[in-house]
Design a protein around this nucleic acid. Structure first.
Lengths: 227, 227
DNA sequence: TAAATAGTGTCTCTTAGACAATATTAT
DNA sequence: ATAATATTGTCTAAGAGACACTATTTA
């Protein structure tokens, strides 16, 4: 009987804290950027950190991530995916904190950071030029996220979230080049994209400068997520 | 000052419980099997469930998973990988429980289930013939694990963990066929495996029955994990 | 007509997949 | 010899990657 209670009563177990942390990617100024917040309080006061926070008791994990995301940005049309859970015992000096990390891809248009009171500063950083030290194990989380993002490029359409609805093939190619951090042959790239049959060619073009205008495309309404 | 304390004092936050659950795969009797335990206590008393348990306060997540694994089996040489964290609010009727799931691949030799007191029964089940109802959201976790396992087949050597150290090419092919649940052309399979240059041909052969004996191979000592 | 970017096609090499005959062992 | 599994090669089609010229626009 006592043994039975031991197994049934949930309150006997010590509880770690659970947070979510989000790697928010966007492409801005021809660069892969991620959002960081400067911590106003200890621990790691003054350090840049991933946006995140504690999971509320009646809140699904994904909602917690989405809530934190909305607290930082006003964007809709967000692609959000769980990344990995980090559970080193000493990752937070305050005590046992397990974090479930997410990564988000947001459209480079209409970026609009909100004013916040609980952080000292918010900013976009180039993934290729991060602050030397980040709070907690957030550097590790970022590297993990970059690897995942690069892999997704190959076999999913998730990365179209980084572009406006209508985009040119050159813009699409730049997304690939910026994420992979290497250049790609224009002819092979276009051949590949066209063979996947994911895009609709619009009648509009985009002019910017003194040269031939580029055709605008959009992703098919029900293009497969996994190619 | 009060606001500062609010952000610093960890004890103000409500804490969900954190468990680990493990999908332990092996290959036995020409079938893909996973280990389930029959629950002795509520909730889901009498239901089959994934082995797992609460994470201890001073225990890294991966250690918790490894500990649960060792509590069920005596195997060493285990491949263990984090799968996904499930955080639906209502997934455990006792309250908020977030689970970090893992999957493990164990060698089909020397399987030796331990006697346990806190479960009613332990058994291997065919992945293709599971009990109709499982405890919690464990069916969902299992399906997620199967998808992951199938994907890993393509580009990692993780699945060699399912075989003894020395194995025949036919045994290796069977692993592929059982996991993918479809048959594979023998000539193409061997051509592919040989082109990857992962194996060492031993001088020994394996006899079993009245037919030509098969050459034994082993995975190269420092074969890459990701191919 | 100069400057700047958009847009396009061919060749080669590698890889995936279809497909069937011979080799070796024990009884 | 028979039964049973091991072992091996060729052909074709599709895709990846190297590579350079023409088209269209504005100033």
């Amino acid at each position: 009987m006592e043994e039975k209670r031991k197994h049934y009563d949930i309150s006997n177990y010590e509880k770690p804290l659970v947070t979510v942390d989000i790697v928010i990617f966007t492409i801005k100024d021809h660069d892969l950027k991620i959002l960081l917040v400067k911590r106003k309080y200890e621990p790691f006061k003054g350090y840049w950190a991933l946006p995140g926070g504690f999971v509320r008791t009646k809140e699904p994990l994904e909602n917690a991530a989405m809530r934190e995301l909305h607290e930082e940005t006003n964007v809709e049309d967000v692609y959000l995916e769980q990344l990995y859970s980090f559970g080193e015992v000493t990752r937070d000096p305050r005590g046992r904190v397990i974090t479930v990390s997410y990564f988000a891809l947001i459209n480079s248009e209409h970026l609009d950071l909100k004013a916040r009171t609980d952080v000292e500063d918010v900013n976009w950083f180039s993934m290729y030029n991060l602050p030397k030290e980040l709070a907690f194990d957030h550097k590790k989380i970022l590297n993990y996220a970059l690897t995942r993002l690069r892999n997704k490029l190959d076999y999913t359409t998730a990365t179209f979230q980084l572009l406006p609805k209508r985009f040119t093939l050159t813009e699409l190619q730049k997304v690939y080049e910026i994420i992979l951090n290497k250049s790609v042959d224009k002819r092979n790239f276009r051949k590949k994209i066209k063979s996947l049959n994911l895009l609709i060619e619009t009648k509009e073009t985009k002019m910017d400068g003194t040269h031939r205008p580029a055709r605008l495309y959009l992703l098919k309404k029900n293009a497969p997520f996994i190619i």
